[in-house]
Design a protein around this nucleic acid. Structure first.
Length: 249
DNA sequence: ACTCGGATTCTCT
DNA sequence: GAGAATCCGAGTA
């Protein structure tokens, strides 16, 4: 079911790295080459309605500093979930009925990780949006692996040579690949320079975004709140899911 | 206290 | 495409 070749597409190249360096020895993870010239996003980026911030989050990097080295992935698919202050409200959102012990991070300051357990065996990670006191979040649904493919492969219990799609295409797959759990990561500030889990901007530019309905929910299933890079191999869900393309910025 | 079902994934048909 | 795995948060009584 998983298939092979990556489509070629625009990619930010660190300008100060000679192109001869881009051919790396087999098994050498390119974290050191890939992570320079990045910056943390400003908190204001997430102090916005999730459906506004979500498409702009595409192309940014999720980076986890682990014992096995840095794991990094480019965000290629997200969904927005709206807080209860919205009209109409979003009954698919965990924050829909107000704050609880589980969802309290969503009502805190923007830019923090909301990690929850699902189906007794998986986790999903969201980034909190809106100012403190208001809820809203962006669910990370798929990444393109950038650094640390070997540790990701081990974390996913896959054999050597697993495809990018097998590693991080799906909200719980990417958590497993990155070693993200509720116990360790819920509530972490993704915008703190000292955090081991961060969202970074490396200058990768996205011009066009695919907008569709959200996947795997019952309520408010018709709202166009899923955003993805058009045609990217790592995007999850059925290829038949139709949406429209919008221009960004 | 008790029930319900889920922002999923994997395996098998 | 269908069914299982498998836990706990949230809603109801």
């Amino acid at each position: 079911m998983e298939k092979g070749p990556q489509v070629s597409r625009k990619r930010a190249e660190p300008a100060h790295i000679p192109s001869s360096f881009s051919t790396l020895p087999k098994g050498w993870d390119s974290a050191r080459a890939a992570l320079p010239r990045t910056r943390l996003l400003p908190r204001t980026f997430f102090e916005a309605p999730p459906d506004v911030a979500a498409p702009r989050l595409l192309g940014k990097l999720l980076v986890h500093q682990t014992e096995a080295g840095p794991l990094a992935g480019r965000i290629v698919e997200v969904e927005a979930y709206l807080g209860p202050h919205n009209h109409p409200s979003d009954p698919a959102a965990h924050a829909h009925r107000g704050p609880t012990a589980r969802n309290s991070v969503l009502f805190g300051p923007a830019g923090h990780a909301y990690v929850y357990a699902i189906y007794g065996r998986y986790f999903c990670i969201n980034i909190s949006c809106e100012i403190e006191g208001r809820a809203g979040c962006i669910l990370l649904r798929a990444l393109e692996p950038v650094s640390g493919m070997e540790p990701m492969t081990r974390n996913r219990n896959l054999p050597h040579g697993a495809t990018p799609r097998q590693l991080t295409s799906g909200p719980s797959r990417l958590c497993q690949a990155f070693g993200i759990t509720r116990q360790l990561h819920n509530g972490l500030d993704l915008l703190d320079p000292a955090s081991r889990l961060q969202v970074l901007d490396d200058g990768y530019e996205v011009s066009e975004v695919l907008v569709t309905t959200r996947i795997g929910i019952r309520h408010a299933a018709d709202r166009p709140l899923r955003f993805a890079l058009p045609g990217h191999d790592c995007v999850s869900g059925p290829k038949s899911l139709i949406g429209k393309r919008i221009l960004i910025r």
